[in-house]
Design a protein around this nucleic acid. Structure first.
Length: 561
RNA sequence: GCGCCUGUAGCUCAGCUGGAUAGAGUACUGCCCUCCGAAGGCAGGGGUCGCAGGUUCGAAUCCUGCCAGGCGCGCCA
């Protein structure tokens, strides 16, 4: 709809330029937008306001000229000029009816766009170190990242979901030492406990499994515990495999899958880290100081230079990070989205600087970052502390177990990622109207229920008949539903363009509200077959639309509840 | 001290990248089931958009300066 109106306005502008009312020149980026107020029609444009200066005429005057040059269109019933010079479009009901037919014709693909044109977008998210269970912050990352991936796919991108494991750094050594200590029966309070050891109870479980010589199957590989407490390398491999398996299970329970599990260690194994350092040095962007090798990242927008190779010969974490992102580029990711906790935002400038210094054609804003703020969990009116060290560790799994997958995913995506989020467990698990997830799911189940009721009364729904008589839907409530329905393609596009999946949750709520309002004022199953089939056709379109929206969030669309 | 993010109804949050009278949910008040699911609907009250300037036809939105909160600022990841 929006595109059609846009085309009409552009035609009108061309006509005015041809007539000399407007001088030749660039057309400013005017907006076609939904109006807030029904009295202002369905859509409005500010084109006349923006073009007024260029034309050296008053905005309202120019608006009149624009309206006069507007080509006729079935879509538009009437046009008004309002306020300082807005052009308001009142759409014909037929425009909305057409959209209902489109929903039925396109089904699960309805609302999807083509801006991605099959190009590849890599979405990296979660990327938790395999040193502990996933916590609630990882849950937010998983929910947001996966929804972004879904939304991009719905916009025609070929999406690759990617999880990066930091399995090569000092933290992994810490993990291995911690497990080793536990295997030897050492408690975190003991003087011989490793300095930065992981104190959580899960370390005990890993140690026990190692001593019991368990085998772990993960990513098609089998890791067998040797049970040899002195073999730190064996402990490391086992512990990493054990924790990866845990994380994989949690993510699976959350409905999140990855296409690529990328190991940091593989960058070392394949010499990619060395190669990156070599390239940066060859291009003259490095220097030695104090026994360390530095990257002159300040030349590429960073606020200080960064050490790449420490004086002990090992690399800082950001070098493999650059090598990793380079590999994404080399694998043809036209867009790369990296979803991170905002506490990592310091690494953005550094990684981008490193990529620019490689001088291999990577655009300046690549990769794109989506940062999410902290999650605080409330239960019984009190904050649930997430202390890793103390071992009293509230995990993603705990949250899913308590609140359910659907509510957890909904709540974690329903907010803009850059605002802090308060997760109220009592609300999320409430089976009541306090809970927005149920409100939307209930609307979906209600349609399904009506269809069941129809069958119980020995009737059948003739969809073709209904779609042919949608003109019978002449109530305000029905128009409200159709208007909400028609917004979905715009929501999908905006959510994809801005990487903001929370827009989908807002729209779902609006559509559900319009539907519930309609349901309460109109009986669907009526004797008049024409009217009945028409109403059921619209109800069916609502069900499909809700399902399509929920799918973008990874939330289920139940037939009954 | 410097950088990033946030500040909108009692509470939780939207506000479509500058538009018209700032919106939802929740809580509160009053209504609506002999009727397809009341996990629903309708109506009402509730606001100095943190504060102060600026930019222009027009600012919650952009700029500057303050105030408050969060997160960063390692040869840690």
């Amino acid at each position: 709809m929006k595109e059609q109106l846009q085309a009409l306005v552009l035609d009108a502008i061309d006509a005015l330029r041809a007539a000399g009312t407007l001088p030749a020149g660039d057309t400013p980026a005017f907006v076609i937008e939904r109006t807030k107020n029904r009295a202002h029609g369905d859509f409005a444009t500010n084109a006349a306001l923006l073009l007024a200066r260029q034309a050296a005429r008053k905005p309202r005057e120019l608006a009149t000229a624009l309206v006069d040059s507007l080509p006729a269109a079935m879509l538009v019933e009437r046009v008004e000029i309002a306020g300082p010079g807005f052009i308001n479009f009142f759409l014909a009901r037929a425009a909305y009816v057409d959209e209902v037919r489109r929903v039925h014709a396109e089904g699960a693909r309805w609302g999807h766009g083509t801006t991605g044109a099959g190009r590849t977008a890599g979405v990296e998210f979660v990327s938790a170190n395999p040193t502990g269970p996933l916590h609630v912050g990882h849950g937010r990352a998983a929910a947001i990242g996966d929804s972004i991936a879904r939304v991009l796919a719905a916009n025609g991108w070929h999406v690759v979901r990617e999880f990066y494991y930091n399995d090569a750094g000092a933290q992994i050594t810490n993990l291995a030492l911690s497990v080793q200590a536990r295997a030897r029966g050492i408690e975190p309070e003991a003087p011989t406990w490793p300095a930065d050891g992981y104190r959580g109870d899960y370390i005990k479980d890993v140690a026990r499994a190692f001593l019991d010589r368990e085998a772990i199957y993960s990513e098609g590989e089998r890791v067998l515990a040797s049970g040899d407490v002195d073999d730190l390398d064996a402990i490391r491999r086992f512990a990493v495999a054990w924790l990866r398996r845990e994380q994989d299970q949690d993510l699976k329970a959350f409905g999140v899958r990855f296409d690529v599990h990328f190991l940091e260690s593989s960058l070392y194994d394949q010499g990619k880290v060395e190669e990156t350092v070599h390239q940066l040095t060859a291009r003259g962007h490095t220097y030695e100081e104090g026994g360390a090798l530095w990257l002159r990242s300040t030349a590429f927008g960073d606020d200080k230079d960064r050490v790449m190779r420490k004086s002990d010969g090992s690399y800082t974490y950001f070098v493999p990070d650059v090598a990793y992102h380079l590999s994404k580029w080399q694998r043809g990711y036209e867009r790369a989205i990296t979803e991170l906790g905002s506490d990592h935002h310091g690494s953005l400038a550094r990684v981008r600087a490193g990529l620019q210094a490689l001088d291999c054609g990577i655009p300046e804003g690549w990769p794109e970052y989506v940062l999410h703020q902290m999650v605080t969990v409330m239960r019984g009116g009190e904050e649930v502390k997430l202390s890793k060290r103390a071992g009293s560790y509230f995990t993603l799994r705990d949250l899913i177990d308590e609140a359910g997958r659907d509510a957890t995913r909904w709540f974690l995506t329903a907010r803009k990622s850059d605002s802090q989020l308060t997760f109220d467990i009592d609300l999320a698990r409430a089976q009541s109207n306090d809970n927005p997830v149920y409100y939307v799911q209930y609307a979906h189940a209600r349609v399904a229920s009506v269809m069941r009721q129809l069958a119980e009364r020995g009737m059948a729904h003739d969809q073709t008949h209904g779609l042919a008589h949608l003109d019978r839907l002449d109530s305000q409530a029905e128009l409200d539903v159709m208007v909400e329905l028609s917004r979905f393609p715009e929501v999908v596009e905006a959510a994809g363009a801005n990487l903001e999946p929370h827009l989908v949750t807002i729209w779902l709520r609006d559509l559900a509200a319009a539907f519930h309002g309609w349901y309460n004022t109109n009986q669907f199953i009526v004797d008049d077959a024409e009217l009945r089939d028409a109403r059921l056709a619209l109800a069916g379109a609502v069900r499909q639309a809700l399902a399509n929206g929920l799918e973008l969030l990874g939330v289920s669309a139940p037939e009954s509840m």
